[in-house]
């Protein structure tokens, strides 16, 4: 059983990682959801035991592990909050860039950096020329 879970978690994680590396921001978010789900799968598989309901053990069988369910639920909720956050950021990216592509985002950033470098360059040149004047 653990093996099946391990394979499933691996496949889900791989699919998620693949999606994260694509160009479409919505797919990136979907990839993060998949990765979070693979973590949940690992959490579930970490305490797989068969037994009675832990809330009221009858004594015939050992109760199953209740902690795993609690952890998985918490992980799911955190995954949900995180997905909401990522979607909010993506919505803002779309609003400002009018695009949902990672490439566009990178291009915008590269342009911004170039502008910054240029402004620094002009600043340094000016300072240098100011100093030269003072020396004269």
């Amino acid at each position: 059983m653990t093996l099946i879970f391990a394979i499933a978690a691996g496949v889900v994680f791989g699919a998620g990682a693949f999606l994260v590396l694509t160009n479409d921001l919505v797919r990136v978010v979907a990839g993060m959801v998949l990765i979070s789900q693979s973590a949940v799968l690992v959490v579930i598989s970490s305490g797989l035991t068969r037994g009675d309901a832990p809330i009221l053990p009858t004594g015939d069988k050992t109760p199953s592990d209740p902690l795993v369910q609690a952890m998985a639920l918490t992980a799911i909720v955190i995954g949900l909050a995180v997905t909401a956050l990522l979607l909010a950021i993506v919505a803002r990216v779309r609003a400002t860039l009018r695009s949902l592509e990672v490439r566009e985002l990178a291009r915008d950033e590269a342009e911004h950096t170039a502008e910054l470098e240029q402004s620094l360059d002009t600043m340094h040149e000016q300072l240098a020329s100011d100093e030269a004047k003072e020396e004269q």
């Binding site: 639920l73 918490t74 909720v77 955190i78 949900l80 909050a81 995180v82 909401a84 956050l85 979607l87 909010a88 950021i89 919505a91 803002r92 779309r94 609003a95 400002t96 009018r98």
Partner: peptide
């Protein structure tokens, strides 16, 4: 979704930190 170039913070992002905490 927020209109193009609209100012203001997306509220879901603000509301979400609370969620895992209580869970």
């Amino acid at each position: 979704p927020p209109e193009l170039e609209e100012e203001g913070h997306p509220a879901p992002a603000a509301a979400s930190p609370a969620a895992p905490a209580a869970r």
